[in-house]
Simulated assay, not measured.
Amino acid sequence: MFTGSSYSEDRQKNEALVLKQLQALIEDEDDQIANLANASALLNQYLENINWVGFYLVKGETLVLGPFQGLPACVRISIGKGVCGTAVELDETKLVTDVSAFPGHIACDPASKSEIVVPIHADGKVIGCLDIDAPELQRFTTEDQVFLEQFVRVLEASLKA
Rank of each mutant, 00 (worst) to 15 (best):
C84A: 14
R139I: 05
P119I: 08
Y46C: 11
D123R: 00
G70M: 07
I79V: 14
A37V: 06
E9N: 05
Q150E: 13
Y7L: 15
I127C: 07
V96C: 06
A107C: 07
Q138I: 01
F2Q: 13
D131I: 03
S114A: 04
D91Y: 05
A101Q: 15
T62D: 13
Q45W: 10
L19Y: 11
N35A: 13
M1K: 05
R153G: 01
V64Q: 12
R11H: 09
V152M: 02
G128R: 03
P72F: 08
E156H: 07
S158M: 07
G70P: 09
R139P: 04
L90M: 13
D133M: 11
V152P: 04
K59A: 15
A87V: 07
I132F: 00
S5Q: 14
D131C: 06
V96I: 15
L130N: 06
F102Y: 14
L95S: 11
P103Q: 04
E92C: 10
S112E: 00
K20Q: 15
C74P: 01
L43G: 00
H121S: 05
D133W: 02
Y7Q: 11
N44L: 06
T97A: 13
G4Y: 01
K113L: 13
V118I: 14
G4Q: 05
G70E: 03
E156F: 03
G70D: 05
